[in-house]
Design a protein around this nucleic acid. Structure first.
Length: 507
RNA sequence: GGCGCUAUCGUCUAGGGGUUAGGACGUGAGAUUCUCAAUCUUAAAACCCGGGUUCGAUUCCCGGUAGCGCUACCA
């Protein structure tokens, strides 16, 4: 038995930035295609002429590439030709195709012209609501006589095209939810093509074009958000009207914010572009999104490369229930991948956050590059995403002795009896020392200071740490000293150990 | 209002007619460290409610409740 090659599509509207919810849909489509050895197509749904923008389409393609989701068919970069034999892949370029199909439906009596005005329909709707019934079209224009139609057309009346729904249940199969059935009367005759009033005159509606496109592009599995679940019976009716095979569906649950409301901008970062700007790694985002609504067969594995996901992913294991986006878990995965990432890559990604501290990476001296690489290596384990690095390392670049003294937390440490002795001993050694302070020297000092002051442990180290960094927590001195002393000679305005101690202890 | 979808720790999930209901994030404790982060160990933490089927339901069925979606000549 031969099975048909699977073909799936991701069909976003270029009306804004790629949102994590849509990115997950794209990912699941891609994984399914790659897992089954099928085709992954990208189709741009730009029939909303007022909101669609070219820059969003370009951004979209870029975000997809960044995530590592390549497509077999779809638009190329602006100015470049599209790839695939089922195009065009922008709906705005397919209008003639839809018109042909509408003619066919009309000719076969599967669709009909509806001359009802918006006002008339509004009245019907209100009445239905008052009677607690479902708000469906009455079917008033369903059976107009040919003479009436002629008359209306002759009078120049505007009309919409409606699909004639047969009176039988509309059924389809959903890989995530099982069989789904809708009664015909809950669907009513849907509009396929808008009437000639307004800007969208004669433009076919979404549910219609999406079905025509999916059928013509021979899509075998429609994987999309579950906000389309209630639209599906209408689409099934369209497939049936054309006598087309109804594809398999897989409706993915909604991604919610912590308040159980649909995830939106007010929950914080939600677009792929924003996460990238914040310094999240694509592999972390991909891994997290994969886990949001899908689980490995062993129920335990949490980290996956794209290749591993491709092997493991099946739609049968996708969860039907809505999922709350958990930034903490994303952070954990990002920290995980930050540790695995090649150091040079992390450095290159981090450089942009230090634009006001450092020269551009390609303009920086080798010494600065080396030093910055060490800085990143030391501090990367402290952050959720790269964007947090400047704040974490701020004390290296600008040491504020005044703030260090005034801080409440520090005051507590400095108020301990031995603290001033410790600082005095430290200052004496620093002043007497010439050249760079290396960790070995520092270690000797600390032992001497320990003996001289009687302070040990926190009482010994905390005051010193404050004098050097302004805080009583941070990386090991072994790592910190080379960073400070190494940074001080780079002409970046970084204070040396000596300058720090002088500033902190002096007057 | 109508229709549909969903319901296991705080969160993401595994599981499934009899289980000590498993894993991960987060949280608490401990180890390590001068400290913080990291790391390791460890603890607490869940089957929405009510009926039915059954010797036995968290699991299957029905109802309720709640959340979400659709209910447009938006996509």
């Amino acid at each position: 038995m031969t099975t048909k090659r699977t073909r799936v599509r991701f069909a976003p509207s270029p009306t804004g930035l790629l949102h994590v919810g849509n990115a997950r849909t794209a990912l699941y489509n891609w994984l399914f295609a790659r897992h089954t050895g099928g085709d992954f197509l990208l189709r741009i749904e730009d029939t909303d002429l007022e909101r669609s923008e070219v820059r969003y389409e370009a951004q979209l393609l870029e975000d997809m590439r960044w995530l590592g989701l390549d497509w077999d068919e779809g638009p190329g970069q602006p100015g470049e030709p599209e790839v695939g034999n089922f195009g065009p892949y922008r709906q705005s370029e397919r209008l003639a195709l839809y018109a042909e199909h509408t003619e066919r439906l009309l000719a076969e009596g599967k669709a009909y012209r509806c001359f009802c005005t918006t006002e008339e329909l509004e009245i019907e709707r209100k009445q239905a609501a008052a009677e607690h019934g479902s708000q469906v079209y009455s079917g008033r224009c369903r059976n107009l006589l040919p003479t009436e139609i002629e008359k209306n057309l002759a009078e120049g009346k505007h009309f919409a095209v409606r699909l004639r729904i047969e009176d039988r249940p509309l059924r389809f199969h959903d890989l995530v939810r099982g069989p789904v059935e809708f009664a015909a009367e809950t669907v009513s005759d849907p509009v396929l093509v808008r009437s000639a009033s307004g800007v969208s005159a004669g433009i076919p509606v979404y549910n219609y074009v999406v079905t025509v496109d999916d059928a013509l592009m021979e899509i075998t599995h429609v994987i999309r958000g579950d906000d389309h679940l209630s639209n599906t019976p209408k689409q099934v009716a369209i497939y049936e009207a054309f006598d087309w095979a109804v594809p398999e569906f897989a409706h993915l649950s909604t991604i919610l914010g912590a308040d159980r409301e649909r995830l939106s901008k007010r929950h914080g970062a939600t677009s792929i572009a924003t996460f990238r700007e914040m310094g999240y790694l694509p592999e972390a985002l991909v891994n997290y999104l994969a886990l949001l609504g899908w689980g490995a067969e062993d129920g335990k594995t949490e980290t996956f490369t794209l290749e591993e996901l491709t092997r493991a992913f099946t739609l049968e294991r996708v969860t039907p229930s809505p999922a709350i986006f958990d930034f903490e878990k994303l952070n954990w995965l990002n920290r995980h991948y930050l540790k695995l990432a090649a150091p040079e890559r992390v450095v290159a990604l981090t450089w942009r956050y230090f634009a006001d501290r450092l020269p551009a990476q390609d303009a920086a001296t080798g010494a600065i590059q080396d030093w910055f690489a060490r800085l990143v290596a030391v501090f990367a384990p402290y952050v959720d995403c790269l964007e947090q690095l400047p704040a974490k390392t701020a004390f290296v670049f600008g040491f504020d002795a005044e703030a260090a003294r005034m801080s409440e937390e520090n005051a507590e440490v400095l108020a301990v009896d031995s603290a001033q002795t410790v600082l005095g001993e430290l200052a004496g050694r620093v002043r007497a020392h010439t050249g760079v302070v290396i960790p070995e020297t520092f270690k000797v000092w600390m032992n001497e200071i320990k003996a001289a002051s009687g302070a040990k442990g926190k009482d010994l180290f905390h005051p010193v740490r404050i004098a050097l960094t302004g805080a009583h927590s941070g990386p090991d001195f072994d790592k910190l000293l080379p960073l400070i002393e190494g940074g001080a000679v780079l002409g970046l305005g970084i204070a040396s150990v000596r300058e720090r101690v002088e500033r902190f202890v002096g007057v």
